[in-house]
Amino acid sequence: MSSESDLPPKMRPSAQVAPPKPRPRPQDPVEQEFWKRCQDGNLYFQRCSGCGCFRHLPRYMCAKCGAPEFSWERSSGKGTLFSWTVTHQALHPAFAAEIPFVAAVVELEEGVRMATRLIGCDHERLALDLPVEVEFELIGEDFRLPVFRLRES
């Protein structure tokens, strides 16, 4: 075969280039605010003005007391590994080069849990309650996505 057009579509060099990682596309203003605040390299969670509970995912009313008033508070970015799975199949081609990767749920010091990716870790070391901290992965030229890595206790 002498040219790209002679190859099956999936084997052509142009088809081998990974697309960019997808970005969150929130439609709701309160979710948009969460992602906007991540762009300064810090995590922020809503804190209920009524009972003081932190909440995530962002929402309009507190799940504990029902109060609609809240403020955005900066998180410590520290927490523990609550749950995880090692993913061996990329469901989006942008993640194919990173498999196997760890999809995780992290419990932060503020009490909220967050679905994320755990990066830079030996999969054999994974255990409940391992200490983790937030790091921000640059996606494209201008979007920061919170991910987590193991931290020394």
Results as ranks from 00 to 15, higher is better:
residue 11 M to F: 14
residue 87 T to A: 10
residue 9 P to V: 08
residue 54 F to E: 02
residue 46 Q to F: 03
residue 12 R to C: 03
residue 16 Q to M: 14
residue 32 Q to R: 15
residue 16 Q to G: 07
residue 93 P to C: 02
residue 104 A to K: 05
residue 31 E to V: 12
residue 82 F to T: 00
residue 75 S to P: 04
residue 78 K to H: 12
residue 67 A to S: 13
residue 110 E to S: 12
residue 10 K to E: 13
residue 56 H to L: 06
residue 100 P to W: 01
residue 18 A to P: 05
residue 86 V to L: 02
residue 93 P to N: 03
residue 14 S to P: 01
residue 59 R to P: 03
residue 50 G to Q: 07
residue 100 P to Q: 05
residue 11 M to I: 01
residue 48 C to V: 05
residue 68 P to S: 13
residue 31 E to P: 00
residue 97 A to F: 02
residue 70 F to P: 00
residue 42 N to T: 04
residue 55 R to A: 10
residue 54 F to S: 13
residue 59 R to G: 14
residue 67 A to Q: 14
residue 41 G to H: 08
residue 25 R to T: 15
residue 48 C to E: 04
residue 36 K to E: 15
residue 22 P to L: 06
residue 64 K to A: 11
residue 38 C to W: 07
residue 41 G to S: 07
residue 85 T to A: 12
residue 14 S to I: 14
residue 9 P to N: 06
residue 94 A to I: 00
residue 37 R to A: 07
residue 71 S to E: 11
residue 17 V to Q: 04
residue 8 P to C: 05
residue 59 R to E: 11
residue 17 V to I: 14
residue 103 A to H: 08
residue 21 K to I: 01
residue 58 P to Y: 07
residue 105 V to N: 01
residue 50 G to Y: 09
residue 43 L to Y: 03
residue 18 A to D: 09
residue 35 W to G: 04
residue 49 S to M: 13
residue 10 K to W: 13
residue 93 P to W: 07
residue 26 P to W: 01
residue 92 H to F: 05
residue 86 V to Q: 01
residue 50 G to V: 09
residue 39 Q to E: 13
residue 12 R to Y: 11
residue 8 P to A: 13
residue 28 D to P: 03
residue 70 F to A: 13
residue 64 K to Q: 15
residue 18 A to I: 02
residue 112 V to P: 01
residue 9 P to T: 09
residue 47 R to T: 09
residue 113 R to G: 08
residue 91 L to K: 04
residue 97 A to N: 02
residue 28 D to M: 06
residue 63 A to G: 09
residue 36 K to C: 11
residue 64 K to C: 00
residue 84 W to R: 01
residue 63 A to W: 13
residue 116 T to F: 03
residue 69 E to S: 15
residue 76 S to A: 12
residue 114 M to G: 04
residue 109 E to I: 12
residue 112 V to Y: 00
residue 30 V to F: 09
residue 102 V to P: 00
residue 65 C to W: 14
residue 114 M to H: 10
residue 12 R to A: 04
residue 8 P to L: 15
residue 53 C to Q: 13
residue 112 V to C: 02
residue 81 L to G: 02
residue 41 G to K: 10
residue 113 R to F: 10
residue 104 A to L: 11
residue 51 C to M: 10
residue 109 E to P: 11
residue 97 A to Y: 00
residue 109 E to Q: 15
residue 103 A to M: 11
residue 34 F to H: 06
residue 38 C to T: 14
residue 86 V to H: 02
residue 33 E to Y: 03
residue 56 H to V: 05
residue 64 K to G: 00
residue 98 E to M: 09
residue 8 P to D: 06
residue 77 G to Q: 10
residue 76 S to Y: 10
residue 73 E to R: 03
residue 68 P to V: 07
residue 113 R to P: 02
residue 38 C to R: 00
residue 19 P to T: 05
residue 83 S to T: 12
residue 114 M to Q: 06
residue 6 D to R: 02
residue 59 R to H: 09
residue 16 Q to Y: 03
residue 19 P to F: 02
residue 31 E to N: 10
residue 77 G to P: 05
residue 32 Q to A: 11
residue 39 Q to H: 08
residue 110 E to K: 01
residue 107 E to P: 01
